[in-house]
Design a protein around this nucleic acid. Sequence first.
RNA 1: GGCGCAUUCGUCUAGUGGUUAGGACACGGCCCUCUCAAGGCCGCGGCAGGGGUUCGAAUCCCCUAUGCGCUACCA
Length: 489
Amino acid sequence: MSVRVRFAPSPTGYLHVGGLRTALYNYFFARKHNGKLILRIEDTDRTRYVEGSVENLIKTLTWAGIEFDEGPHIGGPYGPYYQSQRLEIYRKHADLLIEKGWAYYAFDTPEELEEARQKSPHHEFKYDRYSMRNQFTLGIEKTHELISQGVPYVIRLKVPDNQEIQFYDIIRGEISVNSKDVDDQILLKSDGYPTYHLANVVDDHLMEITHIIRGEEWLPSVPKHILLYNAFGWEIPKLAHLPLLLNKDRTKLSKRQGDVAVEDYIAKGYFPEAFVNFIALLGWNPSADREIYSVQELIDKFELEKVNKAGAIFDVVKLDAINAKYLYSKPIDELASEFRFWVEQRGYFNLSDEYLRKVVALLRERVKKLPEIIDFAPYMFEKPKQYDLEYFKKHWSDTTKEHLENILNLLRTIEDFTHQTVHDEVLKYLNERNLKLKEVIHPLRLAITGLSYGAGMFETMEVLGKDEVIQRLEYFLQNILPEIQNEKK
RNA sequence: GGCGCAUUCGUCUAGUGGUUAGGACACGGCCCUCUCAAGGCCGCGGCAGGGGUUCGAAUCCCCUAUGCGCUACCA
């Protein structure tokens, strides 16, 4: 039987990084086994629905390079792929469970249930079908009467009293739970929508899903699902419950402690390849002898059996390191055109492709993310607004001004303004006077960039160009120098 | 509270009875050097604890501890 897996998010806003990893593992698994990947939207909670989130989900998944074979955006033979459009199907199956005696009607209101919960000492509440308001306490006739009168009701799963429910998880192995610890789960809500438990079992079966790969938070409800599969007489898909992604303090990854939306990382300028690479390695590792893998390699090497059991902390430092590796190795032209987007977002237009290419080539090794170049080297985009005074104090001597003026004149004479020529000329000047490069290179850097750090100074000068360099030197010597020397006193 | 799952350097992990417990990121040092990076070399640092089983345990079993998840007419 060919592999069919699904990613089934809830349209509640953004794509959670944990969700992305789940989607990724499903994607890897599907591709590796030449199977199908299905996108199914679990929108059975109308109160949590966020307008436009499905489009956003698909957009973000696409950014990450995940392609679906079936889904709401592309259709497919097992649709509809919105659960909200499958209500009759769930209703029919719920009725079937009632008929077979696997489910029953209940009339307790949310308020009544809440009250019962409050009364129990330590969250010990479990639905008691022999004391609450349902078809067992009310009787069949009364039940039908209430239903025909239009009294709201839910359909609950009738969980057997004391039965050991066993199942096998590909990642965790044999797991066993006694049914006495399983609640009579609501399957069909009073608004006619199914709960997750009914909907996912029915859909996974009807959509012929062969492997359920999802987050660990679903592990405790597997017994309910097993009961449902058995009640319907259906085969249970293979199960694989992924470990959770955690905050630095090992709590479940949450909004409070950083960004959890994939969209946030897109906005920060991480590359999709790098982000996917990083996320994929949280909870699974093909060999551990390196950390950079292409998507194709991840697909080829992926094995559910090798996924870790314990949760993994989402560490941005590592993400940055991986992103930096991609930044150092991507083709310059590709980076340059992408860089234009970030540069323009910051309000810098009218920069040539060639200029952006040079800036990226010179500075990419000094930052973790492409847009960081703008903050790291603002002098590439505008004249210095301020000058590092500490840097000035450290490298300025009584003769520095004179040398800078001489070098400025020297630069004016250079026709071929490349880093090599400038370097040679400046060094010639220094050698003639028996001076070291350090005596002028820092003052030059300060005058031209305002900062104490940056790429090689001759390379920087070449990129900025002769006119700009001369302008900046002149401006510094005439306007800035008197000012800061004044301050110094 | 109940039930379930988990536990190898700070972090991500390799490891499936015999290894000096390996790698990467981070951190520290050195080299390179016009600064900052990058790169190279070196270093720091770990099997949660306790019992078993075994000639031998990070690996198998049990207990404890800790963490996490679930315990909704949310997914």
